[in-house]
Amino acid sequence: MEARAQVRFARHTPMKARRVVDLIRGLPASEAQAVLQFAPQSASETVYKVLSSAIANAEHNFNLDRDTLVVSRAWVDEGPTLKRFRPRAQGRAYRINKRTSHITVIVESREPKGRTR
Rank of each mutant, 00 (worst) to 15 (best):
L27P: 07
L69R: 06
T46Q: 15
G114I: 04
Q37W: 08
D65V: 04
R25W: 07
A32F: 12
A32L: 10
Q90P: 06
A10Q: 03
N61F: 13
I24M: 06
L27R: 13
N97Y: 12
A34L: 08
T68P: 00
G79D: 03
A74F: 04
S72T: 14
Y48F: 09
L64T: 04
N63P: 01
H102A: 02
S109W: 00
S52F: 11
V71H: 06
R73G: 04
E31I: 03
N97M: 10
H102K: 05
L51W: 02
R88P: 02
L27C: 07
N61V: 14
A34C: 03
A93L: 08
P80M: 07
L82H: 05
A74V: 03
V50K: 15
Y48H: 11
E78W: 02
T81E: 05
H12D: 03
S53Y: 04
F38E: 09
R117H: 14
D65N: 05
R95S: 14
L27W: 08
V70C: 02
F38S: 13
V7M: 15
R66T: 00
A43S: 01
S101G: 05
V50T: 15
R88W: 07
P14T: 00
A93T: 15
H60D: 15
P14L: 00
Y48R: 14
E78I: 02
V35W: 01
A32I: 10
V21N: 10
K49Q: 06
E2F: 09
R115K: 10
S109R: 00
N63Y: 02
K98Y: 11
A56K: 11
Q41W: 03
K16Y: 07
R117Q: 11
A56S: 13
R84K: 08
A39I: 11
L23K: 14
V21Y: 12
R19N: 06
R86E: 11
Q41R: 04
I103A: 09
G114Y: 02
S42C: 13
N61Q: 14
V50F: 12
K113N: 10
R88E: 09
P87S: 04
V20A: 10
D77Q: 05
T81V: 11
W75R: 12
M15V: 14
Q6R: 12
G79P: 06
S101M: 05
M1I: 13
A29Q: 14
S30G: 12
A89V: 15
E59R: 07
D67E: 10
R95Y: 12
F85E: 08
F85R: 12
H60N: 15
D22Y: 01
A56E: 10
I24S: 06
F38M: 10
F62T: 05
P112C: 04
Y48K: 07
